[in-house]
Design a protein around this nucleic acid. Structure first.
Lengths: 201, 201
DNA sequence: ATTTAAAGTGAACATATGTTCGCGAAGGAG
DNA sequence: CTCCTTCGCGAACATATGTTCACTTTAAAT
């Protein structure tokens, strides 16, 4: 998909990325012109080429309208959820407890949220009290996946398992008991699938 | 520290943050003028006030030169290090193996880098093979902290312990042996202190 | 040798954009 | 009431900036 770039195109792209990182905003045509030691019109052409090859997006006519295509790295804003009451929409603003910016290599596409892990019910999966769990919002999950589920009005992590036709939420700690998940969405509701764990020291 | 904002100032700040998130770059004075339904000169004054109160930084004369001050959330670019050879400066470009954007609530201030954990020597601390370790670059560490150390030309995680005058790097796995760290920086060198662990599923 | 695409230049143009100026209104402090 | 700050307007100004044009150069492909 990513077409081959010429030397100067690559250099221009690198410069744009670096400028963005250092300055916090995109360079102008003349910024690039000065850095690359090329005329504005030359830079303009190079930008058109970069856009055509899909590496950047330009907002025509707007100053500093260069956007680096979300190819490798960018960040997404993930809300950290506090208390969650049963039945309420999971992503309602009310239970926001702050947010965190995470690299797209962690979160990928889709609706995400984060939970602070409390308790030791997943210690067997090396997930500890205080860890931040990054969850992909979903009502379904595959067997073997660790899911965030709503139990008694509280969100917890459990590993999803199937035995024949029956589905269980398994804590990874022998001190806790499995919970059966019935079809009628009885006692438990799957909120999403665990995609990452972040632990701070 | 953050001075009280007037209603319109708060609204302007919110608008700037939102614009930045949605568009990927800062708004112009006239963008704000249009959104807030105020004249450009009014917006200009409000921006000056916001700058004076420390909420934004402006690059005078530059278009889209509004930068939101590092208040609550922003991200830092952390290099992921691959192979590290003894003696070489740790953050030399040569062993970059990509990078990751992380929230400032994870990395804080200071020089950081990341390592991919390989092996199970820290399984007792619930750090697994494949985890990403976020390290604060430092030559010193307190006892009890988990450090990244250079052993035989390879970076590994160990917990730092002291016994009298002697310092040891302890793997958290009974299958591995402690390594003594001598004053003369003999067999091992401390690269930094573990600040976070990220695990992907 | 001829053709073609990319790279390059410098000047010119159109407009996007930050800034200044002079003026007025609203509201709190004294 | 007066003083002061903030908020407000519209016009004007200076320049920053994207874009176009006409033409040349370079390098690779035919």
């Amino acid at each position: 998909m990513p077409e081959q770039l010429t030397k100067i195109q690559q250099k221009a792209l690198d410069t744009i990325v670096e400028f963005n990182r250092d300055q916090g905003f995109a360079p102008t045509v003349r910024d690039l012109s000065s850095i690359l030691d090329r005329s504005p019109s030359t830079v303009h052409k190079i930008l058109l080429a970069l856009e055509e090859k899909g590496h950047i997006t330009r907002k025509e006519g707007l100053s500093r309208g260069i956007l680096i295509k979300r190819d490798s790295h960018n960040t997404a804003t993930i809300p950290i959820l506090g208390r969650i009451a049963a039945g309420e929409p999971i992503l309602a603003e009310e239970h926001y407890d702050g947010y965190i910016e995470l690299d797209s290599s962690i979160v990928g596409r889709g609706e995400y949220f984060a939970l602070r892990v409390s308790g030791d019910s997943m210690i067997g999966a090396n997930i500890l009290d205080g860890d931040t769990a990054v969850i992909l919002s979903s009502n379904e999950a595959e067997k073997g996946e660790i899911v965030a589920a709503l139990l008694n009005g509280e969100a917890t992590l459990k590993r999803l398992m199937r035995k024949g036709r029956r589905t269980f939420l398994m804590p990874e700690n022998p001190a806790y008991s499995p919970i059966e998940l019935d079809e009628a969405r009885g006692p438990a509701q799957i909120l999403g699938i665990l995609k990452a764990v972040i632990r701070r020291y």
